[in-house]
Nucleic acid binder design. Structure first.
Length: 588
RNA sequence: GCGCCCGUAGCUCAAUUGGAUAGAGUACUUGGCUUCGAACCAAGUGGUUAGAGGUUCGAGUCCUCUCGGGCGUGCCA
């Protein structure tokens, strides 16, 4: 219907164009908005305001000329010029009612983009290091990413969801050593645990299964483990301390033994993360291993091409990437003095790999603390001759946790965090998914745990679910009353839906597809959440309205028309909740 | 110091991406269940959009500065 109005305006535009009143290259200035205020009609267009200045004409006068040129329409009751020059259209009552039939016909497909598109999107999100369980900060990225993936899919894009598993590099060695030290402790050695090791309880569990399966196979006396290890922090250098421990670990254990300890940690934690996400309704098409980039030589390959293209140089024994020449603040090390490649080196290879897989767009969802990383990755893409405009990085701000009115710390290494699993169990998956997605991602988020727990019933997700359950309940009542639901009769009598409540609902339902598209394009899932809240609100109002009395009216025609409307509402709520990863219960 | 993000009702957040009188939830005050579920509805109180300039028909939104908060500024990942 909105498109219909736009067509009319376009016709008028072309007519005025022929009269030489306006130039012919400004058709894109025709933009139709839904009005916020019903006094402004159903749709508003600001084209006269936008064009007036360019052609040196009074906006209201121009608006009048446009309106005079509008072709007649069966569905528009009147067109008004308001304010500084808005063109407002008022639809005839019932003009949009056919959307009910559309919804009931398309069911779960209503709102989804039917045309489809060839624009393929790669979406990487969460990608937390497999060094510990997910915490509530990761939960935000998970809920946001999963919902965005659903929205993009609904908008017609083929979406590839990927988790980048950082199973290579120094952090993983630190994990292996942490496991090994706890294991030595279980073997009876008196171990002083390094401050930079992973201190969470889950390390004990992994060490315990290692001990269970391999007994004392990896046991070495404490003094050999700590031989020639420099002092730990705070007085010593904690980084050098843990690096020396890693070196000792690798020399005391055979390569195969080290791999065993290493994998024990990696596989247990990865499996844990995977299960956690699955339970949270967050699914992936691919779990991409960082180690595969190293082993297949892709990291060496990109470093070679950077070298050949003259983007690398040596300084202080390290190899640097001249990223400052491509928009970064400063140059970055890709190979450390000790010969190890940095995280950036593998990440350059990873992004090159993604692009070579043939996606039209690559979306990375990162924690906001990585924002400084964007310029250097983009620089690397340019340096490799890749199109860096295909990379879109969405930064999700931190969820700041409050417990008992105080900020709670979140450090994986110190083992002090609230896990995502804990949160899910405390407030439930539905509430957690919804809560996370209720704010836009660049908004800092205060997450009061006590509030989330104690007031989980006040979470707006229940409000929406309740509207869905209510329609189901009406249907049950229908059966109890031995009444029949005749969809065909209802659809024939949509004209009986003449109250303001019903009109408002119909308009809201008709807006769903464009809302979905807008949310996907803006990468803003919260728009869908707010839309559903509005829809639920309008249904609850309708249901309670004194002047409507009952949906289950005595009169067959009216009852069936109302049931059609109610079922359409239920369908759209179910469709929306599905995209949000929230269940749509039939009773609560 | 420099860079990025943010600042909207007592609290938590929206605002159709530059549109018309800045809206919801929560809290507080009031009214509504003799049966389609009250996990609901209706009404009210609550604002110098941190502050000051600027851009234009029009600014919470864009630009500049100031104040306040978060993050970053590693040969960590």
């Amino acid at each position: 219907m909105k498109d219909h109005f736009k067509e009319l305006l376009l016709t008028a535009y072309k007519q005025l164009q022929q009269q030489g009143l306006i130039p012919d290259d400004l058709e894109s200035s025709i933009k139709i908005d839904n009005t916020r205020n019903s006094a402004h009609g159903d749709f508003a267009c600001n084209m006269a305001l936008a064009l007036a200045k360019k052609i040196g004409m009074n906006p209201r006068e121009l608006a009048q000329r446009i309106v005079d040129s509008l072709p007649p329409s069966d569905s528009i009751a009147k067109v008004e010029i308001a304010g500084p020059g808005f063109i407002n259209a008022f639809l005839k009552q019932g003009a949009q009612q056919q959307v009910i039939a559309e919804i009931l016909r398309q069911k779960q497909d209503y709102g989804r983009c039917k045309a489809g598109t060839k624009h393929k999107i790669h979406l990487e999100f969460v990608s937390a290091n497999p060094t510990g369980p997910l915490h509530v900060g990761h939960g935000r990225g998970a809920a946001y990413g999963a919902t965005l993936a659903n929205l993009l899919t609904a908008a017609g894009h083929p979406v590839h969801r990927e988790y980048y598993v950082n199973d290579a590099g120094r952090q993983m060695d630190i994990l292996a050593v942490s496991v090994w030290l706890r294991y030595l402790d279980l073997c009876g050695e008196e171990v002083i645990f390094p401050t930079n090791g992973y201190q969470g309880d889950y390390i004990w569990d992994i060490a315990a299964s290692l001990h269970r399966e391999h007994a004392e196979k990896f046991l070495h006396p404490f003094d050999t483990v700590y031989a020639n290890v420099p002092a730990d922090g705070p007085d010593g250098d904690k980084e050098a301390h843990i690096d020396a421990l890693i070196a000792n670990c690798r020399s005391l254990l055979t390569e195969e033994e080290y791999r065993t300890v290493f994998s024990q940690g990696l596989t247990e934690i990865t499996a844990n993360i995977r299960q956690d996400l699955e339970e949270f309704g967050v699914h992936y098409d691919e779990w991409f291993a960082e180690s595969s980039l190293v082993e297949s030589g892709q990291v060496d390959e990109v470093i070679d091409s950077l070298q050949r293209a003259g983007h690398l140089y040596e300084k202080n024994g390290a190899v640097w990437f001249r990223s400052s020449a491509l928009g970064d603040e400063k140059d970055r090390v890709v190979i450390r003095e000790n010969g190890l490649k940095t995280y950036l080196a593998t990440d350059i290879a990873y992004h090159a790999n993604k692009l070579k897989r043939g996606y039209d767009e690559i979306i990375d969802i990162w924690g906001a603390d990585h924002h400084g990383y964007v310029p250097r990755v983009k620089a690397s893409m340019q340096a490799l001759g890749l199109d860096d405009s295909k990379l879109e990085v969405l930064l999700v701000q931190f969820a700041i946790l409050y417990r008992g009115g105080e900020k709670a710390q979140m450090s994986t290494r110190a083992g002090e965090f609230v896990s995502l699993r804990q949160l899910r169990h405390e407030v439930g998956n539905d509430a957690a998914r919804f809560f996370y997605v209720l704010r836009k991602c660049e908004q800092h988020m205060d997450f009061d745990l006590d509030l989330a727990k104690s007031q989980s019933k006040d979470n707006p997700v229940y409000y929406i679910q309740y509207a869905h359950a209510r329609v189901c309940s009406v249907l049950q009542k229908l059966q109890q009353k031995d009444m029949e639901y005749d969809e065909a009769q209802g659809l024939e009598n949509l004209g009986l839906l003449d109250t303001d409540y019903e009109q408002a609902l119909v308009i809201r339902l008709a807006q769903y597809p464009e809302q979905l598209l807008r949310a996907a394009q803006a990468r803003e899932p919260h728009q869908l959440a707010y839309y559903l809240r509005e829809l639920a609100n309008e249904f609850h109002t309708y249901y309670n309205a004194k002047d409507v009395k009952k949906i289950l009216d005595e009169e067959d025609e009216r009852r069936n028309a109302r049931l059609c409307l109610s079922l359409a509402v239920r369908q759209v709520i179910a469709n929306g909740l599905e995209l949000l990863g929230v269940s749509a219960p039939e009773s609560m």
